[in-house]
Structure formats: C-alpha cells, structure tokens
Design a protein around this nucleic acid. Structure first.
Lengths: 338, 338
DNA sequence: TTGAAAGCGCTAACAG
DNA sequence: CTGTTAGCGCTTTCAA
C-alpha cells in the first residue's frame, strides 16, 4: 500500500496559507467577508494540497450538508430504475447523493436495518433521506424523509406512490378488450400495500366489465417465480381454466410462462400472460414506459425532499403519480415475445 | 413534516440509564468490561429510545468505522452488476456499504468529482473505498483504495482488472472457428485502457490465426450506439465487406445491428455480430456469464479491500481475474437472437 | 477583515 | 467495573 498520505486537514491549509482555521473555513463556505487576496491565496493552497474537507467533521458542526441519502433494499432492477431518476434530479441540484443498502431485502432483520440506516444517514451526514420500498412506517430521524413506493403508507411522511391500482385496471381492460372473460390473478405478498391495490384493480375491473368474480381464479403469491409457477399450474389444471393470467409482478409472470410451457400451452394462442412491473422485458423490447415511470418516482421524490429541506411549500403531501404503467403495446409485445 | 423528533444522542441514553457516556460507548462498541446488568439496562434504554449513533461523530473519533465506500461513475447496467458482487461480499462481512455517485460518467469535471468523492469518503466516513472504472490514477486518501476495472492502471493501487484482452481473444477465436476471415472491429474510446486491450486481443488473434491485418476493417468508436452505427455502415459499404463485426461493447453492437438491418443484411446469415459486455442480452437470454464476471470483480475487490483494512497479507497486488468473459454459447445465442 | 475559543457527539486514555 | 477528561476537524460566535 502506498496510501500513507495522511489526510490533509483545514489546519494544514491554514498553516500553509499563513492564516487561521476560521479564515479558511470562511472561504470554504463562501462567506463574503474575506479579503480577496487572502481568498485567492487560500484557494491556491487548497488546490495545491488537494484538500477535501472532512465530511464527518463538517456534518457534525453545520446542519447544512448538501447531501441527500437514499436507502434501498437491494441493488436490483427495480431499485436501479428509481436510482436513475434520483440521479437525474440530483444532477440538476446542488446536492450530492449517498446510497445505503443492506444488499438483500429478504435478509433477516431487514426492517431493523432499514430503520437503522435511515437514522444513521439522517441524523448525521445527510440533509434528508429517501427510503425506497420501505417495510417500516416509522422512523426516528433528525432530517426529513420521503418514502418512495412504501409497502405501508404512513400519512405522516411525504411519499411518492406507484400506480398500482390504476395500472392493474388498465391491464384488465386490455385483456377484457381482447375478449377474455376468465382471467386468473396471481397475487403478490399479501401484507404489502401495493399487492393489495393491484388485486383491487383486478377485482374492480371485472365488476366494471360486468364479469362475475370467481375466487378460484385468484391465487396467493409472494412475488417469486417459484410460487407463481406452483399456482399457475394449479390454475391451468382447472376444469374451466382461465384464458389469461395476470401476475402481480414480472417474476411471477415468469413462473406462469414456465408452467404454461410445461403444460404444452402456447402463448399467446392458448393463454395470454401479463405481468406487472415488466422491467426486464420492457428493456429487451426497447420499451421505456416502466423504466421511465420508476425513474420518475425517484426524480419526484428528490424534488419533494429538496423542497422540504429548503423550506419551499409542497403542493401535496402525498404525490400521486399519473404516469401510465402499462402501455397497450407493451402488453401485446410482451405476450408475443414469450 | 412531522419530523420534529430531535435526534437522540449518547448523552440522552446515558442520562436515561443513569450512567456516564463512556459506559454507554463501551457497550455500543462491545467492550467486555461492563457489568452485565448495567449492560442490559443500557441496551434496553437504547432499544426503547430508538437510538442510533451519530455516524459523523463516531467516524471522527475512531478510525474504525465498519463502513466501505464505493464510488461509481453512474448507475448503469455495468456498475450495477459490480455493485451486486460488492453487496454479496459486504453481506458476508461485518462492513456496511455506502455508495457515492456523480450520476453521469460523462459529466463535466467528472474526474474532479471522482477524486473529490474518494477523498470525501476515505478521509472521513469509510475505512476504505472501491473506485469503479476510474479515469483518474491518483488519489489523496487517508484510507486504502482498490480500483475495479480502472481506465488507467496505476501499479501503486491494488486493482481488480477485467479480462479485456483474453475476452477479445476468445471472441475472435470463436469467429475464426466459424470460418470468418474478414472480421471488422469497432473500437471503444481510444484513451481508455480496456479499449486498447480489446483491440490488442483482436489483432493478436488474427496474427495467431495467420490472417493478415487489414486496417480498413478497424474503425474508431466511443462505446455509443450512434457512433458504432455510423462506422458499421461504413464497414458494410466496403467493396470487400467483412462477414463478421466485433464491437468493443454492447452499445456499439446495437449500432451494428441497426446498420445491418437498414442495409438489408440478415443476421447471422449475412453477417455475424458480437459485442463485448453483452450485459443486456445475456440477461434476456438467461445467461449469467457476464453478470457473474462483473459481479465477481466487485466481490473480489471488497475482499481485497477488507484484507488491506484488517492488515491481512495480499497474495497479489494486482489481482487478475481468470473468469472467461465470453462463453461460446453466449456468442452463439446472441447472434441468433438478433 | 481576521483570530481565539467554544463545542457538535463520540471514543479512548487515564484514574479511581 | 465506571466516571472524568481530552480531543477528532470543523463551523460559528465573539472580540479585536
């Protein structure tokens, strides 16, 4: 290791420039009341020494850090799309970005970690934090928090929410328009709000179309391919099997494809399949709807948070996205692609 | 905002538990010499108050932070795969992870940002940092640094390097085996080391196969689809056009596909196309080679960094990955898929 | 316009 | 086993 360069502190800079630390601090923070030649001298020294202020020390003293924290459950397709939007907004702002991850949403004690990380960031280093797909609804935080697509919606925190209900409605309208009357539904994790809203969209669309709800066509699920596979087989083995299956997410849709294939059904001739959140397919097919939507959530969240931090008024505490999740073309091409 | 909960400090905990701050600090840091009932009492208070230690303050005082920093140029397919590996290694260790991004690799002053972020993290909050695809070779850092796939290789820093040369050799051997003699090459950004190594692999494979190098078959490029498209059209308009084109990255390969399609060439009958870093295709096709490779780089980098931090000996200062980038099947399926 | 000094929340000696 | 004390590097009064 050749890393024996001891970090340069404001002290070193001050000494080298022949001034006091407070003066250096002043130019660092752009205070006006420093003689311009002193200022130039100090800046030159900073440049030459390659000085970077100590984040920890700075954060501790001043409450203005110009840093936004982002806590994501993992680095997956979903989180990444949101991060993209976050980045875009960050790039447009004067804030920098710090991402904290547990690496695994399913990890034991994930909820504790979630809370821990939010506290960690918000109480010290950042001006505010965005939490993605939070399972928790309560946080102990010094700085403001914005939740993106939270599992449980807590009206006390500003949040950016997905279009789960309306997206599901749209998918159903599309399938019904194609002539389907018996449409299966594979649920997501029951305890998660977005799953519930998707299911509700499924049900309401049927009611709206005057199709009677058949509970045998609705199966449990947990957002995994494996479970969806199991229940898809079950659905497809029914005497009066569905002609279309709507899965609560893309992983589940894969499970359905797998089951259909194994049972010798051709898609989309024998069975139409639609998954919510078709992130990977959308990417392959060159569609950008879903990506843009997710990234838009991240983008909006940052904007909200910045408004809160800077004390600007917020029009809505809960910002409901209006972007459409599923484009007709997306469904169609997805079905044909598999 | 309902966030008026002022952050809880170690002082509050100490007072509530009726002990001194140092005692609380001791249980926080798992020092053995605290009476077990005192310990229980303090832990209970911490739990009840939802106390989380202030990262900034902690980092400043102790040089042990249990936190590893990761600086990535952006949140893209490439970085994400590396992050996955980083996460895996992090999950297995007692370190946490903090990611810093500028959000845009091409952004003006990116190199400055890069250095700035590395300093920021390494001088304060983290025990060490991993820098991905760094354009800079020099850093002022207090903590150790490991470079992943650096553009410029500085032997002073430990690094994990890609298989650019060998991967290119393999691709070429595959194409030559298919019977191709005239193989075009679309370069990556010339100033980047990995581009150069890929080009070298291309050339050396030709020499090895006894095929004369034809400079007209080598075009510039910059890793973008647009530029590759332009040069691919040029290559395909040649009187004696290549029967295969090898593009320096996946984006460039897309440009080639586009050009070929427009010129009425069918793939792979009229033209074979192979791109390096076929991340998106690999994902669609259910292949994991490339992902695993990239993620492996991240994984190894973390392990190296941890060894450096904890003072364990490192076998190699420069760790050369041995994983194969391109599996035969991957090439084949890629070509057939498009 | 500048410097001296206090203290942010925490850890690490050093005493008891 | 526990409390007291002295800073880590920085910003921010308060004086000069």
């Amino acid at each position: 290791m050749k890393n024996k360069k001891r970090a340069i502190t404001i002290q070193n800079v001050a000494r080298a420039a022949g001034v006091s630390v407070s003066t250096v601090s002043r130019v660092l923070n752009g205070k006006a009341d420093v003689a311009s030649d002193t200022q130039d001298r100090i800046r030159a020294v900073i440049e030459k020494m390659g000085y970077t202020s100590n984040l920890a020390a700075r954060s501790m003293r001043s409450h203005k850090k110009n840093l936004i924290g982002l806590v994501v459950p993992d680095i997956g397709l979903y989180s990444v799309e949101i991060m993209r939007g976050v980045n875009r907004a960050i790039a447009e702002s004067k804030f920098d970005l710090l991402v904290y991850t547990t690496g695994d949403a399913q990890k034991n004690g994930a909820i504790l970690h979630e809370q821990h990380y939010v506290s960690l960031l918000s109480n010290s280093v950042t001006d505010g934090v965005i939490i993605v797909a939070s399972a928790t609804a309560e946080f102990i935080a010094d700085a403001p928090i914005v939740a993106v697509d939270p599992h449980i919606i807590n009206p006390n925190y500003p949040s950016v929410q997905g279009m789960n209900y309306h997206g599901a409605l749209e998918v159903m309208e599309y399938l019904i328009e194609l002539g389907h009357r018996r449409i299966g539904f594979i649920c997501g994790l029951a305890e998660i709000g977005s799953s519930q809203r998707r299911l509700q969209g499924y049900k309401d669309a049927l009611v709206k179309a005057g199709i009677e709800l058949d509970e045998t066509l609705i199966t449990p699920g947990d957002f995994t391919q494996k479970t969806a596979y199991k229940y898809a087989r079950q659905l497809l083995a029914l005497e009066n099997r569905p002609t279309a299956i709507f899965a609560a997410n893309d992983q589940s849709a894969f499970g359905v494809y797998q089951a259909a294939e194994e049972m010798g059904l051709s898609i989309p001739n024998d069975l139409s399949v639609v998954g919510f959140d078709n992130i990977s397919e959308a990417k392959y097919l060159g569609l950008t709807t879903v990506d843009q939507f997710l990234s838009e959530m991240g983008y909006v969240a940052v904007q909200m948070l910045i408004k809160i931090i800077t004390g600007e008024p917020l029009e809505l505490e809960i910002h409901k996205m209006q972007t459409k999740l599923v484009k007709r073309t997306s469904c169609q091409r997805l079905i044909q692609a598999v």
